[in-house]
Computed example of a mutant assay.
Amino acid sequence: MSAHLICVTAGGGLPIFARKKGHSDSLPFSIVGSLNGVHMFARPFNIALLNTITDDYSVAWKDFEESLVIIGIASGCSVDVLNKLLESVFNAIVLIVGIDEVKTQRNAERLKKRTAGIWKTICYPVIDRLLDSLDCGDSSNKHSSDVAGFVETILCPENHLMQIVLDSFTECVDSMYSCLLIAGKIAAATESWWSLTPDEMNLLSLLATSENTANSKDIPVFLPHKSPTVAFRFVACTLIPEVQLCCLCGPTPILNDIEHSVTQCFRNSTDILNAAVQCSPKNFPSSYNIDGGVLGVLLVNSATGKYMISKSPQQNSKKAASSSHRLDILRSFFYRAVMNTLIPSYHHNLRNDGSKSDGSTSHVVQR
């Protein structure tokens, strides 16, 4: 099972990049040309080619800003999920280069030069992680736990203590936007961080944990929804393995001062962080006893746009480790049986004068 992403210019169909997931070969040029050609052929006739489905694959086309066309081809996932992936991929591009660069690019070569530089080291790893989130049967991938339209969290007894330290750090660096990630999942965040859209939070989490070879990152980013034209500084610091501290700030303070504030604020919190890490990959406190027949747990809060997923609900279970396909089962169930009703109601709640209805939905997979 596999997935492919192709990005071309909307005007001439010139290739920008191509990425793939799975063990299939790269698509030959003739197929890429045909997929783009049929889309371009429909446009002069005011026909919008959106998607098509074969016995094995879903194919979707999506235009962005009359500048880029992104084509997705995937097996084992629905068109709705594929369309959400295409939107997230475009937002990942905006995150790195900004919307003005996308709108005003006059030729493919200018954009491809950026691809060869900053995109290769920053944008491609994020896009590849987005591809990993597709339900393509690759349950061995430890990152493939995305639920489209929601942000993943981890529940542990130390959440409150970490929030206190995080708030103290946020004051030190004079930023309203900061969060603490454990194994890529949000463990604590400021109110302003939660005000970002789920897609923005997910992309920043992926950026913090992708290609994580350095202890600190200092990268200019454009928030696709909140600030697509004016860049923030995105700073991510690794506190201990599997734990990253992220913040959005302006030109000041400099990175050395931020790292000093990290050391000062978290110097007495190592035990707390190590204890919180122990909740992964279970993702909820070990004190919660789950029936032995439960193979996986998915808890979704549609009011806040958060979710928690666990493929290892049993604390000490060899069977749990060997049944990694349960994560795919949970996500597939969510996508196919729940998403059409849950996600529209979630967005409807957001549109009603900003008010949200309370409530959460949980799903389990049993033997």
Rank of each mutant, 00 (worst) to 15 (best):
G293V: 00
A10W: 01
P281Y: 09
V32G: 03
S168D: 08
G11P: 01
L68S: 00
G117N: 12
T263N: 02
T270I: 01
G11S: 13
S332R: 11
L35M: 01
G137A: 05
A337E: 14
S139M: 02
R114K: 11
V59K: 05
A275G: 02
S355A: 08
N141Q: 04
G117L: 07
V97E: 11
V230P: 00
L330P: 08
V32Q: 08
T341G: 09
C249N: 13
I118T: 08
K356R: 15
L207W: 06
F17L: 10
H347C: 10
A208Y: 07
M308H: 02
N202D: 09
Y124R: 07
A48W: 04
R106C: 12
N340Q: 06
D63M: 07
I272N: 08
L342E: 03
P313Y: 11
S175N: 05
V8E: 12
L95Y: 02
P220Q: 04
A189T: 01
A188S: 10
E101P: 10
V230Q: 09
E101C: 13
L204N: 15
C7Y: 04
H143P: 00
G293K: 02
H260M: 02
M162Q: 03
D146P: 11
Q244S: 05
K282S: 12
R233Y: 04
N83W: 05
A74E: 03
S345W: 01
V69C: 11
S88H: 15
F45E: 13
P228C: 13
M339V: 02
T209V: 08
T229I: 13
P15R: 00
H4A: 15
K120P: 01
F29S: 09
D167V: 03
A108P: 02
R331W: 00
V32Y: 15
Q314W: 12
N36W: 10
S195W: 10
I73G: 11
I53Q: 14
M162G: 06
S67I: 12
D135P: 01
